[in-house]
Write a protein that binds this DNA or RNA. Sequence first.
RNA 1: GCCGAAGUGGCGGAAUGGCAGACGCUGGGGACUUAAAAUCCCCUGGCCGCAAGGUCGUGAGGGUUCAACUCCCUCCUUCGGCACCA
Length: 832
Amino acid sequence: MYDFKAIESKWRKYWEEQGVYKTPVEPDPRKKFYLLEMFAYPSGDLHIGHFRNYTVGDAFWRYQKMKGSDLLHPFGWDAFGLPAEEAAIKQKLHPRDWTGKNISTSRQTLKDLAISYDWDREVITYTPEYYKWTQWVFLQLYKKGLAYQADSSVNWCPSCKTVLANEQVDSENKCWRCHSEVAKRNLRQWFFKITAYAQKLLDGIDKLEHWPENIKAMQRYWIGRSEGVEIEFKVQGSKSNVSVFTTRPDTIYGVTFMAIAPEHPLVSQLTTSEQKSRVEEYVKKAAAKTEIDRAATGEKDGVFTGSFAVNPLSGEQVQLWVADYVLLHYGTGVVMGVPAHDQRDFLFAKKYNIPVKVVIRPADRQTDRPADQMTEAFTDEGTMVNSGSFNGLVSTEGIRKISEHIEKQRLGTRKTYYRLKDWLLSRQRYWGAPIPMVHCPKCGVQPVPEKDLPVLLPEVKDYIPKGRSPLADEPSFINTKCPKCNGPTQRDPDTMDTFVCSSWYHLRYADPRNDKEPFGKDAVNKWLPVDLYIGGAEHACGHLIYFRFITKVLCDLGYLKFDEPVRRLFNHGMVLDEKGEVMSKSKGNVTSPREIMEEYGVDAGRVAMFFAAPSEAEILWSKNGLVGAQRFLNRVYQLVSGIATLPNDDVRDTRRIASLSEMEELYCRKHRTIKQVTEDIEALHYNTALSALMELVNHIYEIKTLLKHPTRAADYAAFKGIIRKTAERVVLLLSPLAPHLCEEMWQMLGNKESVLKAPWPQYNPSALKLKQVELAVQINGKVRSRITVPTDSAEEDVKKVALADEKVKEMLKGAAPKKVIVIPGRLVNIVS
RNA sequence: GCCGAAGUGGCGGAAUGGCAGACGCUGGGGACUUAAAAUCCCCUGGCCGCAAGGUCGUGAGGGUUCAACUCCCUCCUUCGGCACCA
């Protein structure tokens, strides 16, 4: 067994001393490659999921390096945020100390694993040198009118005592961190107007050719564009109108009621005195429920306001109800109820005996089904009926015609809504970047001038949250002077969501030590966009939207020449335990990279991880794979040890060779392997790259065994050269996957320089084919025989050989085949 | 419910219209060894057969094709995401 401890520490030190990870100062624009893995949240040491993420990236880095790319491969720490604060409170440490300790531990692990990061470019989001520019980003958005304050009913976690973003509340209305029930609360909060970029973010998705389809689909859905019409309904006996948004104007003749959200400001106005107490009671009840509670039951309930509205097209009078299935913050907060063609409206109407009026007839029916026989709404397309002059139109056509009609008659306008909501970024917590704003009693809200950044996060005695930011209780921080009038004023006490910190870090890496600007324009446009971004898919609708947004804003402001941060996104799969469960400290089923490294070595750990599945697939981690990986690596090592001393003969000198076909086969296999490994590494399918290498190694062993036979001593001499060359290729092709051992073997083969400086092997396309090829011969789709023909045989010749085959003749019994299909290089199928 | 991905031996997986199960793990047998470990060689989807060979087989059912794990239709299951978005 190779001495992995000695070999790995030797080469780890070598790479470090040689500075191979350093980023070139002036990258060649044609060769630049920015490889990025999602930076880490430093909670304890790295786990096996990190190990996968970073080794997948590292292998790609080594491959790119050999291809001659100028690489930027940085790393950093997303170190602000709740978990650090929670852990710090528990352990009575300052969050900075807790986080800092974890960073040192994890950084050392990454170095021990020899992950190819340029540590000179490390960033840590909690350092003033970094968050100074996070604050700068905030100010740019503020200047552009993209940061605003608003009172808002927010998700409030009573246990963490903070506001949560929508993404931080799970489907059961529980806090993402502590899993306690999330409540509602009204607070004055800062928002980024990401909705102003909804369309740009959506359009941009189409240009993201090398992003996984599922992430793009999730983002499209999250942005949620829908086109429709906003229509005014007159309220009977009142001057006011209610407007509704609908994507189905073709069903407008089927409106039999209207429903308004309980929180809607119009509710009190629309409620008649007879209904007042009932409505007020309902509104109160609804307010106590969260949106998730309301949706969970599936129950549709509401209360009649006593008022009526008039359908602008049919002139029919419809009841106005309050119903909590209507969302205040989508569309106009009012919906037109079409029970026959919307399932929610249907349930509501059935419950309260509201009429159901059919206006769309399914295409496969001639007559209308009586509305009282319907058991559910008909929501598909169909033909319009009971719709005045629009009868007979197909619904898609009807949507267009009615929309036109409504606009012409000035009854409403076409409109597009998005489900994307603005980004709430205020956090009432200590451990974050302070929001660089002041609230002057005279001048109102004022930005802190850029020259006064950073607004330093002060040391506080007590950062335990009490329902407002601990910064509010720190006089030295909160009291300041107004930048406009110089009078006494107060700072905004809140800190920023950590997603703000991570929304621009990819830019900072291009120029991480710049203390004059967040990044030099030149540096950032030279290195970005990121060429390959590797991380988990859990950020699909969080970070991966936010950083696209910030990139677009900074592009519009003229700082960047690109408006998408990442060319190719790759989501690696999760690492689960043998039972398929998520590894966690509480379950006690975690495996640490350090354990693997010490017991089996870094290379064996990598190979085991890579071989288990393609990088995007989920892995059930078990120690079995490590043994196999070690066995394979040792097999390669033994092979190379045995031939390291062989002469490097000229391969093409075949005069002495007895078995030309064996020689040719090895040569062909070598080139096929180069092709496959290259393509597989490009796709991050390291599992099949490894299996191709295993096959080649097995083949070399086979040949060596054959040549041991006494009668073949002369052949052995002739084979030495090509075996050696093939082994060299194996070492190069394997080196991104098992770098330490391959450096060692490369040196054993007499090379003076690092394997990283060797060029990536190229294959010769003409060497991919053998002179002879074996074809399967099928009769009626079943393999019955095999024939060997020259590779470039004409179809006719192949047919002849196949039909002349003894087994074929026997099966056909002299009958002429109906058809013979020849697939060159693959098979012959005889149809009889 | 909607969107997305997936379903292949005892296990991880390979093959994206052309010989299903590559490669590896596990298991079995053998060689070497005083012995063990390591290493090397052979076998390892089911059924029938002494064997040659035959036959079934990629979640289920249909279809297209000379040929389907692969394409089309219907359905089932699992995972991920979203979830009253009018």
